[in-house]
């Protein structure tokens, strides 16, 4: 099979980008989308043209490095799949496929399809730490956790931080990412000690980075390669309300007044 790709080319953050159309060589339909880009890049290199820059790492759907908006949908046509595990058999011979970078002002374009997702790292940093007992290893299962709580925390922890939620949201909101990262720890007994500070600080970092606001349309969860549910956005809102109310009324220790 052969396809044409209409791809965004941009030299660097400052320069103005634009679309360019490239013909692919003969492809094996079982190639992944990224492998298709690889072979086009080989051609481009042979022709002395700059290859298309795109992010990729594990290529098995677990690292969250690959991005791309394919025909308007982050991570391509399927549900619950990252770009690296989207295969050319999902397209028709002769298709013209539009490939754009994730578009969000907090994610500036570095080159072509590569964007800077550093604000996500800042949000994670703002989440702070989890207090754990140091010294000898604790007894396994010393802290009782119900299966449901553990499973829900695991659902949230499945987030690979790729940023597709931001890319899909018409407001470039990071609420699904932040919701997942907050809920992952806030639901567990180990995460209780820093619960309120965690949610307040992470939301502050999210706002600081300039992400948009959630309008409850749930395009984020629809494109999430890990199928993170927007229940975690609701959970984030609830934790934020509770933390704000508690912080506003709770008496503070004398050291906080220094």
């Amino acid at each position: 099979m052969k396809v044409k790709i209409k791809v965004w080319r941009q030299k660097n953050q400052e320069s103005k980008g634009g679309f360019k159309v490239y013909d692919s060589p003969e492809l094996n339909s079982n190639m992944s989308f990224l492998e298709m880009l690889d072979v086009i890049n080989e051609d481009l290199t042979d022709q002395g043209e700059e290859p298309i820059a795109f992010d990729h790492d594990c290529r098995e759907g677990i690292c969250g490095t690959c991005s791309l908006v394919i025909d308007g949908k982050p991570h391509g046509p399927h549900q619950g799949v990252a770009t690296c595990q989207t295969y050319m058999r999902s397209f028709e011979d002769g298709d013209i496929i539009t490939v754009e970078p994730f578009r969000a002002d907090p994610f500036p374009i570095i080159k072509d399809l590569v964007v800077n997702r550093k604000p996500f790292d800042k949000i994670i940093q703002a989440g702070g730490f989890v207090t754990v007992r140091t010294g000898s290893a604790p007894d396994a299962n010393a802290i009782p956790i119900s299966k449901e709580v553990a499973d829900t925390a695991m659902d949230a922890a499945a987030c690979i931080g790729c940023g597709a939620c931001v890319a899909a949201c018409k407001n470039a909101s990071a609420m699904l990412f932040v919701g997942a990262k907050v809920s992952q720890l806030n639901g567990l007994p180990q995460g209780q000690a820093e619960k309120d500070n965690r949610v307040l600080n992470m939301v502050a970092a999210m706002d600081e980075a300039g992400f948009g606001n959630c309008t409850n349309q749930y395009e984020c969860s629809a494109v999430c390669p890990k199928l993170i549910t927007h229940d975690f956005i609701s959970q984030l809102n609830r934790d934020f309300v509770a933390a704000t109310v508690r912080k506003s009324f709770k008496s503070k220790p004398s050291t906080a007044k220094l």
């Binding site: 539009t98 002002d105 018409k170 948009g212 395009e219």
Partner: peptide, 15 residues
């Protein structure tokens, strides 16, 4: 402000 440049291909899934 958060999305000053929009996509060329628009796509709505469940909104």
């Amino acid at each position: 402000k958060a999305r000053s440049q929009s996509y060329t291909a628009s796509h709505t899934i469940q909104a």
